[in-house]
Design a protein around this nucleic acid. Structure first.
Lengths: 214, 214, 214, 214
DNA sequence: CATGAATGAGAGTTCATTCAT
DNA sequence: TATGAATGAACTCTCATTCAT
């Protein structure tokens, strides 16, 4: 049986991704409970019934959305940081702007907000995010800091808390953007923040021989 | 027949506060949409109908909860900071532990999570929080920094971003506590964080003559 | 124990009547189901709980209202009509304006609307009204007509339907006043209607010898 | 396993009409407030949720019901009456039985009762009925009477009140049927009433040359 | 595969009724 | 008696999920 003339049609294999993308937007804007499947379907360009061809339940879609797009970012950063040849100061100078860059384009802000919001309702997702994204990231940075401490580059102190100090301004900037900018607040420039944070961290984190001379 | 416990009590004075307290817990755990009035009523020890004796709608209860307990904290901090006689370094040494102390006992974490979660659904509340709590706080700290810069105590840079750097680790610690600790993550000790953050900020924020000698 | 100075206070024995009066207004405006006991209590100047000191249920109040103020009107008309000495033509000339006069000041319109509206929900009340007010009235008028027919004053025909023809314009005028005048319709003047209706009925109801000569 | 009757049918076309029909019955029996959507849905043979596929709110269903089936009756009568070639006496002889016939089969009685009952609660509907049905009908009949007066066929007097006299017995008959017949009252035969009313009106409404000779 | 009309459990809200005061 | 805070059943309306087409 020869194939008829190939009619244009969307590739079926993309449907789950298209749905997840639409769902990310809706969940991120409304939260889990207030998000309507009707709206997700409409934004995905499919019928409401079609959602159930690819996902079992609304919760299932939510899980898919949260778990999607997590791995790539971690992998990218891990690749850049692990085995970085230079000093910790040089590492910081690379890492902080890179983090700012990634965060400003990644959907991680929206998903992060969802995890914060719905963590109590979906502990499995909170655990997943902690185990897959947050803990590895913190662990990675902590490890780099610990090694830098061993080399005498970084002052004494809890590496995990140092890691928190390093990344928290960016977290705050993301939440600021999602929460207060829509109601009229002045945005926090991510790149300026990265530069200024780098300067302060170099001054405060590094030992005198390594940082204060810059 | 001996009288059992009375079927209900008349305590008009106390009810609104009790309801708001119960609602804070439920909203904070579940988010606005997933919170059931049934549960709020049960935790407040009243019937569902009684809620409507004191509040018009579910949204009204939510508003009451979000607007509650905002002013006190701001006022306390403003009183401590404004007109502080010492140097900025001394100010930091007071301010960071104080902030950590306040945050660890205030319901601000739960409410803040709600504002982050539901900001899009209730922009009025996001605006209220920004205008009443967040912007004043940031403005207060920024002002202190700017004056310290004029005195040559603090390095050059955007005071608003310095303020973000100062407070963001505590924001992150709160969200960490609310989101990841319940699923098994190691807590971030607020007081240890405050001490370490103070050390780093003194090293990185202050000018050499003022900070690096400590 | 000497009595203290006599404080002014409302006479308790009027309470049920005051409540029924307020209830008449509210039921008449809103219908049974949409009438709120809160509003009845407020208009009666008592608390909601006080209603239950005098009536068992909302339905009980409704019954009281419907059954109240029915008997007087019937009695007045019956007294005027029964044993009227003159001709039927003279009777009509008395009866129609009198009916118009009574209806324009009596609460019968409001109650009648309630009976029409709620007859299906409260058949007992429909039956009560029919038996106590409507059927006696129709019977009374029918009887007068029948006797006038026997005297050759009124044309042949079903006396009951003649009675309907006699009273129906006033019914319509009442319903018009209650229903359409509030939304801007021109009122139907009851006294003008009575005069014109009298003229037509004299021409159409009476036999030539009795009516057409007027 | 043989297939039982399908759990539900898709009949998008027919549903609104079926729902409105069921709603007419329920509203007419119970009044607006006492009518339960559950019962409307059950009588329409659909689920409660299905009502909301076709109507926005309960009030919306009520509006649809009240506005339904109004225009047709008016149009039919207007067509019959306007431009009627014969004398007013002949017109009456056609009009009154026709009115009786239409009213005895039309749902206008039930809807009219609803308008009377709920006019205060839904003034928009009272206005709609007045403007679309009642005022045009009264105006139509008044106009015919006025022209007949100009031709000397009808006695002097307010044409609008004459119109009321003409139609009110039928209104009363309808309300009688809806209100008192269900509790045991003798029905008022509409066709007999029409014939007798015709006779009386010919005698009382027409001028001697036109009416009294019949 | 795909649709969307239809379902039905469950939510927020109202209000007649009760009862501690 | 009188109050009105408190109750809880019942209502309207929503929306995740199903299924005839």
């Amino acid at each position: 049986m020869q194939p008829g003339p190939p009619k244009f049609q969307r590739r079926k294999e993309d449907r789950p991704g298209e749905i997840a993308l639409a769902a990310l937007a809706v969940f991120s804007e409304k939260g889990f409970a207030a998000a309507k499947l009707d709206e997700i379907a409409r934004r995905a360009g499919v019928s409401k019934g079609a959602l159930y061809l690819y996902y079992e339940t609304k919760e299932d879609i939510f899980h898919a959305v949260v778990k999607t797009a997590v791995a790539p970012d971690v992998a990218v950063l891990r690749a850049r940081l692990e085995g970085f040849p230079g000093s910790f100061e040089e590492l910081l100078a690379i890492f902080l702007p890179a983090l700012a860059g990634i965060l400003s384009v990644s959907p991680v802000a929206g998903i992060g907000k969802m995890v914060i919001s719905e963590g109590r309702n979906f502990p499995e997702l909170a655990r997943y995010w902690h185990d897959e994204l947050v803990a590895p990231m913190i662990g990675l940075v902590s490890g780099l800091i610990a090694r830098a401490q061993e080399r005498g580059e970084v002052r004494l102190g809890d590496p995990r808390l140092f890691a928190v100090q390093l990344v928290s301004p960016f977290l705050m900037a993301l939440l600021w953007r999602e929460t207060f900018v829509p109601v009229g607040a002045e945005p926090l420039g991510l790149s300026t923040l990265a530069a200024q944070h780098l300067a302060v961290m170099k001054g405060g984190l590094l030992t005198p021989a390594n940082g204060s001379g810059s």
